[in-house]
């Protein structure tokens, strides 16, 4: 059982008014303080590599073909069933590439499991956070909307390797 002891108030506190005046003086001082508002469309949030935004597909250095081999691991790892992949054969060295790669951004919970599941470093969490459109259909992103040049995701990729290397080292020593 919790026993709440009431604080004995002094006469000045029980009269309300001195305390009211004190409270008013505090809020008056706050009025002239520097504002913390960020004016959103003009001033955006500064993102760091830790920011886990929407997942994006990495393009190879030729800026045309995806690194993805449509193995389906991200699809299986996705807890929200947001990813749908149809693979097909290709003449390229990797032999398979996605014909269709869709992420339903309305279902995606930005957990980053796809990023961790991917064996080919083909999908990474970008720093893109904005998600708005007029129809649900438009928010199911296909390859065209998902693909990004490697440079755009480089910060995240480096960070990702950084923490994974640390984990690997720790597990090898123990």
């Amino acid at each position: 059982m919790v026993i709440v002891k009431r604080k004995q108030l002094s006469l000045a506190e029980r009269l309300y008014l001195p305390e009211v005046v004190r409270a008013l003086s505090i809020t008056l001082r706050v009025i002239f303080k520097k504002k913390v508002t960020r004016q959103y469309p003009e001033e955006r949030m500064v993102t760091t590599a830790v920011t886990r935004g929407q997942p994006r597909l990495v393009l190879l250095d030729d800026n045309k073909s995806l690194a993805c081999v449509s193995c389906g691991l991200c699809e299986a790892a996705c807890p929200a069933y947001a990813i749908t992949i149809d693979g097909e054969e290709t003449e390229r060295f990797i032999e398979r590439e996605p014909k269709r790669f869709e992420i339903d951004m309305l279902r995606c919970i930005l957990c980053g499991f796809c990023e961790e599941a991917c064996p080919k470093d083909a999908i990474f969490m970008s720093d893109e956070l904005e998600l708005a459109d007029f129809s649900r259909q438009a928010l199911i992103y296909d390859i065209d909307k998902l693909k990004r040049p490697r440079a755009a995701l480089q910060k995240r990729i480096d960070y990702f390797y950084g923490i994974n290397d640390r984990w690997r080292k720790r597990s090898s020593t123990s």
């Binding site: 809020t27 706050v30 009025i31 303080k33 520097k34 504002k35 913390v36 508002t37 004016q39």
Partner: peptide, 10 residues
């Protein structure tokens, strides 16, 4: 406006 100022907003 006043409510915003008192809450450090614009």
């Amino acid at each position: 406006k006043v409510s915003a100022w008192i809450q450090w907003r614009i």
